[in-house]
Design a protein around this nucleic acid. Structure first.
Length: 568
RNA sequence: CGGGGUGUAGCGCAGACUGGUAGCGCGUUUGGUUCGGGACCAAAAGGUCGGGGGUUCAAAUCCCCCCGCCCCGACCA
């Protein structure tokens, strides 16, 4: 492909709204163009790279035994009512009406559609197991789109769904997808970290996320320094530190803390360490008020709390509820004397002397011993894990990192198959519910994650497997007819060998071409110039390496082929 | 949705406080000189100053309303 024929619009400076390296580079290299918030056009180069990722995904899905389908992006509201998710995802979905005033949604995901498919098409255990997949555009009304393709309103996703006769069989389907994901990301040149994850609004019982470690990642995770444990912060557990129990003869006493509401304010005012304060949070669990206690230096993990209480829906109590339940304005809640259920972080189970709110305006209590002075319904691990917490498996300290979620595998169970009656007849003629799994890869996000993980100050460094072109053929001076001619015939030869060539035939100065070459990040650069031709050679340079080598014109194509083959 | 910011040529920005001919760099076009790491000279094109309303002799500039975009937060598979 000639540069002059396609459209490659490189930018010397990044648009001001690009924040992270990968987004800036995608804009600068002319891969994508913004239409509006969270909406991007793929330009020719970006599309080529995207297709490469899709190809890898398809090959590995097929290899794992999954079969491709294509479901509508436009979906009737009814199926979302049927699964019960219409109310859950309502605000996240784009909703439209047809001329008959029927409400439709633009699919944010496809569990409902695929389960409907399975319910209609699968009747017998002989048809199972089945794993379906598609690569489809998803639509989500993101509250805040950002970082280019990382969080967009419209994006490409590979989603797969498995149907099995039993939980045991479903485990095998799950493992097959898990293994395929490992291969996919490896082939994309990505280093990923697999973490245990929360299932969130997806439902289901168990899941793993594939994370690309990056400081710009939107997800937090912890990983054990010693064993293989790693988990999303939404999920991560921690072992409790060994702390000596302490107690006091003194009874709780009120102290005036005028206008001191936050942990920091109270800590400074009472001259008590944050960790010796107990934070009391009031929530509505399925509408009923509860209190939650966590150490003052910790943050409550709402996901853990919801799970501990059996999957209730949680929301922070409003000020009126807090006043009604605690008898005091917000900022002075404490466990002593509360009549609503009180749940506490497990770390508070070891008796200790602490300070809490007094359920009275401008007052806190000191010398509180929870086990003695408060009525705790239950202790659970409830706080967000962080750097230095102990691994729940081996008690070694954990590290905290950030990552980009590129893939997610779920064991779904029967949530959707029950709702849609996706069942089959077993060998004994009994009707059984299928057991499902679902498996997503953010394709467009993966593309950007590759750049986030593989670039330098000069530009993108594409892995050969996903590069828009394998070779950038540069003629530094197109006015020099012999160079141009030699390059043209080299392009023809390379392309006849199946090599993907971008031929920079622009009448630009060499410096511009070399800078653009680095920016685009095409893995192999071949330069045909008056200078190289004097030795009967083509200069070859890899984007990943500083050195160049001179290859005789006659052997260039075989050399490049072996480089390309060697990378596979 | 709350808080903050921002909107001026394709991109990056100045001009606004203190109202009076709309500017700079890069890019683009033409001509010339150059030609291995984002050249130089000369000429040129390109703007409803986000939109609407108001104040004023006069508004990019001051006031009001609306919209887009960005950041932080809440929220979210």
């Amino acid at each position: 492909m000639r540069w002059s024929q396609t459209l490659v619009t490189t930018l010397r400076e990044a648009p001001q709204d690009a924040e992270i390296a990968s987004h800036k580079l995608m804009m600068r290299a002319g891969l994508i163009m913004k239409l509006g918030g969270g909406l991007y056009t793929f330009l020719p180069l970006g599309l080529r790279a995207l297709r490469k990722v899709e190809k890898i995904v398809r090959e590995e899905m097929d290899h794992a035994g999954a079969v491709e389908v294509l479901m509508p992006a436009l979906q009737p509201r009814e199926i979302w009512e049927q699964s019960g998710r219409y109310s859950v995802l309502r605000d996240a979905m784009f909703k439209i009406r047809d001329r008959q005033d029927r409400e439709m949604v633009l699919g944010p995901t496809h569990e409902e559609v695929i389960t409907d498919l399975a319910a209609r098409q699968i009747n017998s255990y002989r048809q199972l197991p089945k794993t379906f997949y598609q690569i489809q555009t998803k639509f989500r009304d993101e509250i805040r789109p950002r970082f280019g393709l990382m969080r967009a309103k419209e994006f490409s996703m590979k989603d797969a769904y498995s149907f099995d006769v039993s939980w045991e069989a479903a485990d095998q389907s799950y493992q097959a997808m898990y293994d395929a994901y490992v291969r996919i990301f490896k082939r994309c040149g990505l280093k990923t970290k697999v973490v245990e994850a929360d299932t969130g609004a997806m439902g289901g019982n168990f899941s793993h996320e594939f994370m690309v470690l990056a400081d710009s990642g939107e997800d937090g995770l912890v990983e054990c320094q010693s064993c293989t444990y790693a988990a999303n912060l939404e999920r991560a557990e921690r072992a409790l530190p060994q702390t000596a129990p302490e107690t006091t003869e003194r009874l709780p006493r009120s102290v005036a803390t005028p206008d001191k509401r936050t942990i920091e304010e109270v800590s400074a005012f009472l001259k008590v360490e944050c960790s010796d304060l107990v934070k009391t949070l009031v929530y509505l669990a399925n509408g009923e008020p509860i209190a939650v206690l966590v150490p003052g230096n910790r943050e409550l993990n709402e996901h853990k709390l919801a799970r501990a209480l059996g999957g209730v829906s949680l929301q922070m109590a409003d000020d009126d509820t807090i006043r009604r339940v605690t008898g005091s304005p917000v900022g002075f809640a404490g466990p002593v004397g509360l009549t609503i259920p009180v749940y506490a972080d497990a770390e508070l189970k070891t008796s200790r002397v602490c300070a809490t709110g007094a359920n009275a305006p401008d007052t806190h209590l000191m010398d509180v011993v929870l086990q003695r002075d408060a009525c705790i319904s239950e202790y659970y691990d409830l706080v967000i894990a962080h750097e230095g917490d102990l691994c729940p498996r081996c008690r070694a300290p954990m590290r905290e990192k950030r990552g980009i979620e590129v893939g997610h595998v779920f064991k779904l169970g029967t949530k959707y198959s029950k709702a849609f009656n996706a069942s089959y007849l077993d060998a004994d003629g009994n009707r059984q519910i299928s057991v499902m799994g679902c498996y997503g890869i953010g394709v467009t996000r993966t593309l950007q994650a590759i750049i986030e993980q593989s670039h330098d100050e000069n530009g993108i460094i594409w892995p050969l497997s996903v590069a828009p072109f394998q070779v950038n053929l540069v003629v530094p001076n197109v006015q020099h007819a012999p160079s141009l001619q030699a390059a043209e015939s080299l392009q023809t030869e390379l392309e006849s060998q199946g090599i993907e060539v971008l031929f920079d035939d622009r009448d630009e100065r060499p410096g511009v071409k070399f800078k653009d070459s680095d920016l685009l990040g095409i893995p192999i650069r071949a330069v045909v110039s008056e200078r190289s031709l004097a030795d009967g050679c083509v200069e070859v340079k890899l984007r990943t390496e500083a050195g160049k080598s001179m290859i005789p014109v006659a052997s260039v194509s075989s050399r490049l082929l072996s480089i390309i083959e060697g990378a596979k």
